[in-house]
Amino acid sequence: MGFSLSHLKALEAESIHIIREVAAEFAKPVMLYSIGKDSSVMVRLAQKAFYPGPIPFPLLHIDTTYKFGEMIEFRDSFARSIGADLIVHTNRKAIEDGASPFRLGTQKCCAQLKTRALLDALEAGGYDAAFGGARRDEEKSRAKERIYSFRDRFGQWDPKNQRPELWNLYNARVDKGESIRVFPLSNWTELDVWHYIWAEGIPIVPLYFAKERPMVVRGASLIPLEHGIPLLPNESPQMVMCRMRSLGCTYCTGAIRSEADTLPKIIEELISFRRSERENRVIDHDQEGSMEVKKREGYF
């Protein structure tokens, strides 16, 4: 038979199905938009899901204020260009109290500026479903997560008691105050995401492309010189040809040395990579079973 879909088209169709189900079955969905490559793909899928209509829910960005300047510029122009309804939320209270990765340490900073901020924003908006761009291939505990991931009234995840999830029949029932996190990209891999960005011509933040950037070289890590990172004695910033493999807060997202300044080069580099994408995410490694613990507490 002549009916076959490429793996990217099959993944795309599955994601669109999920996005449409959520839009139809929940009273007030919202799409978490982190400005990264996965978010860019997810937003494109949402555009496709409702074409020729507009995306029927807002995008929400949790801004820790420790993001790269280029990310914020990209976010604003991107949202404008697609006519999206963008909501930006920051845990102002924590910032005023001086929350920063340098003062609190990464674990506590993340709890305040990301997890707390996210839970507050979801509660304030009365959102009963929140899309996230997480993929199961990113991390061990994510590999276990359902596409519809149920959260209790405190936004917490119970990994040992997840609802069975059969076929593409998602159980959308939640009581007041409860919600679900939805992961339409669950079955995509990092390579699929890049492949799709290339195939679809999806705009992404220029930080993903290699360029000479001022960096603090600390051991094997390259830490971007932004937000007044305190330098250790004998450290001085250097210009390094590098790029970001994943985007988060500047202090917690190490760059990698790379010459890859085009999508095909990035993909070529990725295929040759022997190390995982989140390896340079400080927060994934600050304690044993780190991501599972964060997710139980309400992190995406």
Binding site: K140, Q162, S186, D192
Partner: peptide
């Protein structure tokens, strides 16, 4: 085995999804 309880007990509790590819298929 992804969850802490699984690594501790040496059993699989929940479905884990894994991804790999060969030149022919994903």
């Amino acid at each position: 085995d992804g969850l802490k309880a699984e690594r501790e007990q040496g059993i699989t509790i929940d479905v884990a999804y894994r991804y790999f590819s060969t030149p022919r298929r994903k």
